[in-house]
Design a protein around this nucleic acid. Structure first.
Length: 587
RNA sequence: GGGCACGUAGCUCAGUCCGGACAGAGCGUCGGACUUCUAAUCCGGUGGUCGUGGGUUCGAAUCCCAUCGUGCCCGCCA
């Protein structure tokens, strides 16, 4: 409803200014501070003061007088407070909000008929997912969710880097070393088992004498060449390693949960010839030149000083070259492509975009969004070095701590719904994993994060359980209503009886949700949903404190409040869904 | 050396893109509220040179310039 109201306010202001023969290019529409009794306000009077030769408050009064709100459904009182023109909402606004949010799809926007592929995570299949990378699936999943809610047709893609030197080295190490020479795996799962070969291979190469190293390098080179020329046997060997490790990684990611619609392998673009064809096209471009046997692009026109190598001097392709073919493949299948990348990829993303433009693509189709690393207090995390905290360990610890909390609270529990062991386990999972996700998704991705156990697993307010608790409370009320034989009928509710300030504030907050989804999707900023849902939880808790639902004195009030609780539950459930956080029905 | 990001309360962060009403939360700390739909809750107190210095503007945390600090990146790795 907020979106419709905002449009009406803009219309009304434009009409008023036009009839006063004033410019309408900057309406100055903004959300006023909390204590102002208005949903939107305009600061346009400041800008017109000079032109009219009057002080802003006088200008505001004149503009407010000129506004005719009668033709609008949701515009209520229009008044001024000093230099500001304030717009209150009408009763119809509350009524429409209560009606709309009674639907479980509240917050889902109309279908846009636009397909978008969201590529995220795409961690190299070298070993278990560590916390340093965990920001990618959590942010990526939330971005995909917000686009889905905003009416896009979303495909979630994991791009598998199975063609580089890294995987060739891994395959060589896997075939070269015996398991008995390796440490016991940290977990009984493929990614933990295989990563031992990868680490061993790297360590061995670091220590090997020149002759040994050269022989090993020759074998690794042979694997790279085999992949490059599309040799089936080489592909099978590498695939065994890649698929095994990836299967393990998918289990970790699935716990978040972060699911993918498709896994696209880099080797696909070597095997189908698209990578070679692309190199030929690039070579013909005016920006291509040879440099010490390699082929490079001069990207100075794009403000990139260093030229970009797209073909090695030995004739093999590079990661970014193959990624070019990958992106053309995406452009053919989707209207828009979004990639969630670590901040270290910025230059590559710029080079990729420039090269795609040279190849004649419409680069408006592509948007890259970046996040900063999660580091340990003592430094970065590395799969190769085996430094860092595994995502599995973080999630296990989070669940353990959440379980302790649940059990600690069982004794002092007022509600007599008798949680059984399954409930305790369910809540521990929902809260533990939710807390980890909320901690990450609630911050701007560009901010650096230093991982600390205590902070990541803080269940206090401004964390997932605070919001989840609101959902559980709403469900609790509705359960109770159900067991008392009360039917919740939103159509029978009269929104006019919801005149308590806490009820009004809750409805106003609910009304904003679709607009929050819209901007989160447009700006690819899911953390704004996290901010919103926290504010929502505050509004609900105030309502919960001030307004008895089941114990309401009049039946019509109870009916209306029950409808409000349904609306609140739908809102918080969907906001949590966007963030990828579970909404517990009890806690 | 060049480029990009970040710097807001003791700590963790919103707000910055699109300038506007006294800069907001949580944690911490101090005090208060459970015979009342779940106290993982709520209420009150405490706490800020918005890194620093200039500039633009009626108005700057927000825009511009400079500067300091931190992180990331700077062709044949991914």
């Amino acid at each position: 409803m907020f979106r419709e109201f905002r449009r009406e306010v803009e219309d009304a202001l434009t009409a008023a200014l036009t009839s006063m023969d004033l410019p309408t290019d900057d309406l100055g529409v903004e959300e006023p501070p909390e204590d102002v009794p208005a949903v939107l306000a305009s600061s346009v009077a400041f800008r017109l003061a000079g032109e009219l030769g009057q002080a802003p408050p006088q200008v505001a009064a004149r503009v407010a007088d000129e506004i005719d709100g009668s033709g609008y459904e949701y515009v209520g009182d229009v008044g001024t407070q000093g230099p500001y023109v304030n717009f209150e909402v009408s009763d119809a606004y509350y009524a429409a909000t209560l009606d709309g949010s009674g639907d479980e799809s509240w917050g889902r926007l109309e279908d846009r008929g636009t397909s978008v592929v969201v590529e995220h995570t795409s961690a190299n299949p070298t070993g278990p997912v560590h916390v340093g990378r965990a920001r990618n699936p959590i942010i990526g999943d939330a971005i995909a969710n917000s686009l889905d809610f905003a009416g896009y047709d979303v495909t979630r893609e994991y791009y598998v880097n199975d063609a580089g030197r890294q995987m060739a080295l891994f395959t060589w190490a896997y075939e070269r070393f015996d398991e008995e020479d390796l440490p016991v795996p940290e977990r009984d799962r493929a990614d933990y088992e295989f990563v031992r070969y990868y680490r061993k291979g790297n360590a061995w190469l670091d220590d090997a004498d020149e002759e040994e190293a050269e022989a090993a390098e020759a074998e690794i080179e042979a694997i790279i060449r085999g992949l490059e020329t599309g040799d089936d046997e080489t592909y099978e060997r590498v695939s065994h390693v890649v698929d095994s490790v990836l299967a393990g990684m998918r289990e970790s990611l699935g716990r978040l949960p972060a699911e993918f619609d498709r896994f696209v392998k880099e080797t696909q673009f070597l095997r189908d010839g698209s990578s070679d064809a692309l190199v030929d096209r690039l070579r013909e471009s005016q920006y291509a030149e040879r440099d010490e046997g390699a082929w490079v692009l001069d990207l100075e026109e794009w403000g990139i000083e260093k030229s970009f190598v797209f073909l090695r001097s030995d004739g093999t392709t590079l990661y970014t070259t193959r990624d070019l073919a990958h992106h053309e493949w995406k452009f053919e299948r989707f209207d828009e492509a979004i990639t969630v990348l670590g901040e270290d990829q910025k230059l590559h993303a710029d080079q990729l975009e420039a090269a795609l433009e040279i190849l004649g693509n419409d680069i408006d189709q592509l948007t890259s969004t970046f996040y900063s690393w999660v580091n340990l207090p003592e430094g970065g995390m590395s799969t190769r070095e085996g430094t860092g905290v595994d995502l599995d360990d973080l999630l296990d610890e989070a669940i353990d701590r959440a379980r302790d909390e649940v059990e600690k609270r069982l004794d002092s529990r007022i509600r007599d719904d008798e949680l059984d062991d399954d409930d305790v386990e369910r809540i521990a999972h929902q809260v533990g994993i939710g807390a980890v996700r909320y901690d990450i998704v609630s911050k701007q991705p560009t901010k650096g994060i230093t991982f600390e156990w205590e902070r990541a697993l803080d269940f206090e307010a401004q964390s997932a359980p605070y919001v989840q608790y609101v959902h559980a409370r709403a469900c609790g009320i509705l359960d109770e209503a159900d067991s008392e034989g009360l039917t919740v009928d939103p159509t029978a509710a009269d929104p006019a009886v919801l005149d308590h300030p806490a009820e009004r504030e809750l409805l106003r907050t609910i009304a904003r949700f679709p607009a929050v989804v819209e901007t989160a999707a447009e700006d690819l900023e899911p953390h704004t949903v996290a901010t919103y849902v926290r504010e929502f939880a505050e509004a609900f808790n105030a309502f919960y404190r001030e307004c008895q639902v089941l114990g309401a004195e009049r039946e019509e009030v109870r009916t209306a409040r029950l409808a409000l609780v349904v609306a609140a539950r739908n809102t918080v459930a969907n906001a949590l869904a966007v963030l990828g956080i579970a909404a517990p029905t009890s806690m």
